[in-house]
Amino acid sequence: MDENSIAGAAREFGGKVQGAAGTVAGNDETRAEGKRDEVGGATETRVGQASDTVRDVAGEAGDLADRAIDTGRDVLPEAGAAPRRGGDTLTQYAKEFPLAFAAMAGALGYLLAVAIRRRR
């Protein structure tokens, strides 16, 4: 439970007591102060409840993400190895054909520069 919820509930209760005391005593100022504290406490309680809800939802989202990752690993155990294999293939190609690889990298860089320049 969020500390705002606890403090708000205490403030709200205190405001109700103060408002009732002001009503009994016929003191409008005390009654108004009590009402102000009651409303402020109720607001603080709602803020605390909202914080609790956000914290709970964030925790649930994290749990769901963890379960999704675990399920993905179970269903596709080799999926994590694919990028590694692709990198190994590129490394192998660069070692066997360094000039062709350099020309291909240069051409790719040129195309990216042209594409970026056109977007501006």
Rank of each mutant, 00 (worst) to 15 (best):
I6G: 02
A9N: 02
A9E: 08
A10H: 10
R11Q: 15
R11F: 06
R11E: 14
F13P: 00
G15C: 04
G15M: 05
V17C: 07
G19N: 11
G19P: 01
A21V: 15
A21Y: 12
G22L: 03
G22S: 07
G22F: 03
V24W: 12
A25H: 06
A25C: 05
G26Q: 01
N27F: 05
E29Y: 09
T30I: 09
A32Y: 01
A32T: 04
E33I: 06
G34A: 02
G34L: 03
D37L: 08
E38V: 02
V39M: 08
E44C: 00
T45Q: 04
R46C: 01
G48D: 02
A50Y: 06
A50V: 13
D52H: 02
V54G: 04
V54H: 06
R55W: 04
D56A: 13
D56Q: 12
A58K: 15
G59V: 00
G59Q: 02
A61W: 05
A61V: 13
D63W: 00
D63H: 06
D63T: 09
D63A: 13
L64V: 12
A65D: 13
A65K: 11
A65E: 13
D66M: 05
D66T: 07
R67F: 00
R67L: 05
A68N: 06
A68D: 06
A68Q: 04
I69C: 04
D70L: 13
D70C: 05
G72I: 02
D74Q: 09
D74L: 08
V75C: 03
L76G: 04
E78R: 10
E78H: 09
G80Y: 01
A81N: 11
A81F: 01
A81I: 03
A82T: 07
A82I: 13
A82K: 11
A82L: 15
D88C: 02
T89K: 11
T89S: 11
L90W: 09
L90D: 11
L90M: 12
T91W: 04
Y93C: 03
A94P: 01
A94E: 11
A94G: 03
E96Y: 08
E96P: 00
P98T: 03
P98W: 02
F101Y: 08
A103P: 00
M104L: 15
A105M: 14
A107L: 12
L108S: 08
Y110G: 04
L111K: 11
L112A: 14
A113S: 09
A113Q: 10
V114S: 07
V114E: 11
I116M: 11
R118T: 08
R119E: 12
R119Q: 13
